[in-house]
Design a protein around this nucleic acid. Structure first.
Lengths: 256, 256
DNA sequence: GAGTGGTCTAGACCACTCG
DNA sequence: GAGTGGTCTAGACCACTCG
């Protein structure tokens, strides 16, 4: 469906009225229009930045600025050395915010093949923050387990968990499921508090999730508790903003 | 605490080793270091882009690229015609994801003075999406009420609610509280589903929230129900990513 | 090797702020 | 009016991809 011919999917060489404002916003609007009209669709290649620049009679820097805005919004993707493409339509994953569910089982239920890549797994001296959160003593160490969650070939989330080494003495012994492993030791959490915020992705995490740096993402910090009230794990996860919806059910509170 | 003198808060004219990579990332790292060392703090002015460029011997475009990354991350703020500043430390607002609470009362409990600005309040023909969501007939109209929520002088959120005009025939009659108004008519919701996602702010919403375009934010879509199961309102809200934490409590689900 | 995006420069003009 | 960020250009070189 890509059109690198004369009409440039309806983006005329000379800017039509299109409203005023900066050139890069005008171009951004024209590309958005082409998408809305269906002149270009998911997976299609855009003309190269140099081509686009020549045709719309703007400098390449200005074209880049328009394109980068759309990349940050998740509308386009750029691949170094290859080209610029309309972002493939992702099926957003819905995840409940009221039940502690299993990533693997969640995905299986949706018919998605998932796997994880370990980013880190080992014993460390705790940071002051970890000492406080996990309620550790001075001599205690912590197990850090980090992994990248992948569905098909789309990375969805980075999970970084920290536990007392008393609860997880051998991080290497975890199979695919941390909770299953904890269960065996009688340390399965029954309750958790999650804190959700929006986050602009840094270069490193963006690379792991295969998106552009600066893209909006969701960071979730989870503190899990045993029935005894003891903290089992503290996990900081980063979810791709374009791939996840979190769903919560609310009950009547006070009047607003 | 701003330092526009020779040392440039420890950012030396000639780049120290600092690791490699693109110049703009090196500069970004040096500014982050200065912040971490406390050489500059919230509210402080940075040197102008031209000054910075001269001192670190990079072009202004490269300096801008470093600065803009930090602006997008919420670390710095720029004010056109005025300068570049370290972002003031915001007290994040915590909001529960398991109770339907009142924005105004929530804030009052935290000792914050809040007010709202109406962005829109009126009766309209429904969009197809609204017709479906609200379960409307062909001849029904909808009330749209949009407002900007402000704490002190910091805009925190944009709320855009849509209701059947059968439930809200006169949008102008709302005082400060939509729910209070609904209550009077016996149409108070008792249950709601919220859908949370990360979103990169567009120019218009960014301007309303007084942040840079492209900054990460949280979008929450809420569908509220009456005891009868009927949908009362559909609200799409956008929360400043740097000002909000949403907190949810989870109970044990299936194994992971 | 041709083509692509990623980085970088030097310079220009504009719109805005501030005293 | 001086200074600031916002936009824009023409041109260059690099790192990467792809057939």
């Amino acid at each position: 469906m890509a059109d690198t011919g004369e009409t440039l999917f309806g983006i005329e060489p000379i800017a039509l009225p299109q409203g005023g404002g900066p050139l890069y916003l005008q171009l951004k609007r024209r590309i958005e229009d082409a998408l809305q009209r269906g002149a270009i669709g998911p997976g299609d290649a855009l003309p190269s930045e140099r081509d686009l620049a020549a045709r719309v009679e703007m400098s390449r820097v200005t074209v880049r600025k328009a394109v980068q805005h759309l990349v940050r919004e998740g509308v386009l993707v750029q691949r170094h050395g290859s080209g610029t493409y309309v972002a493939p339509q992702l099926n957003r994953v819905e995840q409940s915010l009221s039940q502690l569910t299993s990533f693997s089982e969640d995905m299986a239920r949706r018919g998605m093949a998932v796997h994880s890549v370990w980013l880190d797994r080992g014993l460390y001296a705790p940071s002051p923050e970890e000492t406080v959160t996990l309620g550790l003593g001075a001599a205690d160490s912590v197990a850090r387990v980090s992994r990248l969650r992948i569905a098909g070939d789309t990375p969805l989330a980075i999970e970084r968990a920290v536990l007392s080494s008393a609860i997880l003495p051998d991080p290497e012994a975890i199979g695919t499921s941390l909770y299953e492993h904890l269960d065996k030791g009688g340390n399965r959490p029954i309750r958790a508090i999650q804190r959700i915020r929006a986050l602009s992705l840094g270069a490193d995490d963006a690379a792991l999730l295969d998106v552009a740096p600066g893209v909006a993402s969701l960071q979730i910090e989870r503190t899990s508790y045993l029935a005894s009230g003891r903290v089992v794990e503290f996990t900081r996860s980063i979810y791709r903003g374009d791939a996840y919806d979190f769903v919560a059910e609310l009950r009547l509170g006070v009047s607003r």
